[in-house]
Structure formats: structure tokens, C-alpha cells
Computed example of a mutant assay.
Amino acid sequence: MKKLLLFAFAAFALAACSDEDNTVEPRYDVISFEKSEGMLDAAEMPVELRDVTIAGDWAGGDFSNVLCGKEYMMNEDFNGTYFDGLLFTTADKKIGFGSYFTDNKYSSYGASDVWGGFVLSQNFSKRSNGGSADYSKDGFSAWATAGANASATFAIAYDNGYGVYNYHTPKIEFTEPRKVAYLYLANATVAAQYTSRVENYWFKVVVTGYLKNAEGGSVEQTLIEGENIAADWVKVDCSSLGEVDELRFKVQSNDMSGNYLNCPAYFCVDEIGLIAEK
């Protein structure tokens, strides 16, 4: 009887080990915005980062290695000439990143370039400006030395709370529902440079999933809390969102005037991991 029990236990242990050995790790489709992925721009041409001049007194400047909506402005309204659409997509055009850009030429405050949503960039800066955000130098920079996992390109996002357009806030759209396992977030340089007068200042990014226009779950990541500023990329678990056909990003902070943020509502996104399709 003892031998039989020992044999049964050994068989059970062997089966358990076999089950462990057969565990299959999920595979991921990763969007890292690199040239090798063959991403397409708003004109359905291969993405090419380039030099751009942004007009404006406080955020204007000359920038290199950027893809923004300025050259795709073809519509006109009460603000001026503008672009409001998917600035870049995956090579199969199944996943798109929204962006908005206007020259504001009809504004009573004077013409200046304004954008929202997503932009692509290869700019990194951890230069300190003595507590002041310098948009003219670092408006498209990540507070890091490289992209997530040492990539070259990342997406910088601006949650433009003053816009009235579809893509003035950051959105990712999927033509078919997908499960997002994770993504990486980092501070934008202008956000990391900002010095708040609010006691116990904090800054976070909220990612909300949508499916068929119905709001689903959310995950959030704090990037600044008091003197603790995330110094590099932070991996954010998005598996709880389930299947989504849209991701919307929102900046939240306790540094506000009424319903509007005082702090720079900029952050960076990279290395989006999707559960691979079978």
C-alpha cells in the first residue's frame, strides 16, 4: 500500500511539473514607433521625422526629429487653418494615433501654433531650467535619455483642455478590438521642469478603455508626487482593461484653476504591448 501511495504521489508530482513546463507565455505585438515598423503618416506615406518651426511667443521654436500635424493642415474654421485626424498609424492601418494642430491665425490674441493629442519625437532632455518649463527648447522632449527599452522614437502627448476638436486630447483608435497588456509612460521634460506652488503637488496620467463607445475600466500612473519625479520610463499594466477599440488619456493633478490644469499637461508614451492575435 505504501508503495502504491508513493507511486501515486510521484505521478501527481510529474503531472504537475508537466503542466508547469507546458505553460505558454503570452506573445505580444509591440508598437515602439521605430522606423522598422513601417508606420504611416496622415498622408499614408512612411513616417519621416523632420525639422519643424512652431510659431508663438511662449511655445515657439525650431525643433528637429519631430512629426506633428502642422504640414497636414487642410481645413479652415473660426480659429484658422487646422488638422484634426489620425497623425500616424501602424503599417496595416488598424491602429491610429489622433492629433490636432492649428495656426490660430484668426485668434484675437494673435496667431500662434497650437496642438493636442499625439506627436512623434526623438528628443530627450533632462536639462534643469531652474524650475521653469522651457517650451521653446524642450516642447517635444522626454525626461529620459532614450525611449523605453532604449528605443529611438516615442510619442509625446498633450492633453489640451482648451480644444473643441475630436483629437485635441490623446486618443488611440483600433479598427478591431484588441487587448492591451501594457505600455510605458514617462514625464515630458516640460512637465518634469515645472515647479508647482501647490502643497503636496501630484501629477498622474489616467488611461481609459472604450469598446463600442462604452466607457470601460481605467488604470492610472502617478509620474510626479512632491519631489519624487519619475526619472525614466514606467511600465503600466493595462491588462485589466480587457478588449478595447479605443484608449483615451487624461492628465490629472491637484494644481488647477477651476476646471483647468495649471501644470503642463504633457507626457510620453512608448512600447505599447498588445496581446498577439492567433
Rank of each mutant, 00 (worst) to 15 (best):
L6H: 11
F9M: 13
A11Y: 00
A16I: 12
D21Y: 10
N22K: 07
T23C: 08
V24G: 00
E25C: 06
E25K: 10
P26K: 03
K35D: 14
S36E: 15
L40N: 04
A42T: 06
A42D: 09
E48K: 14
D51M: 04
V52G: 05
V52K: 07
T53A: 10
A55G: 09
W58G: 13
W58H: 15
D62R: 09
D62V: 09
G69N: 04
K70W: 04
M74C: 14
E76P: 15
G80I: 07
T81I: 15
Y82K: 13
F83W: 04
F83D: 06
L87K: 05
L87C: 05
A91P: 11
K93S: 09
I95E: 05
G98M: 04
G98Q: 06
F101R: 06
D103L: 12
K105H: 14
Y106N: 14
Y106G: 07
Y109F: 15
W115K: 07
G116I: 01
F118D: 03
S121Q: 01
Q122G: 05
F124D: 02
S125I: 00
S128V: 11
S128Y: 03
S132Y: 13
A133W: 08
A133Q: 10
K137H: 03
S141N: 05
A142Q: 01
W143N: 07
A148Y: 00
A150Y: 08
A157K: 03
V164I: 15
Y165R: 15
R178Y: 06
R178L: 04
Y182F: 12
A192M: 03
Q193D: 06
T195G: 12
S196Y: 00
R197W: 13
E199P: 03
N200T: 13
F203M: 01
K204L: 11
V206W: 03
G216N: 04
S218I: 11
Q221N: 07
S239T: 12
S239W: 09
S240G: 10
G258Q: 14
D270Y: 08
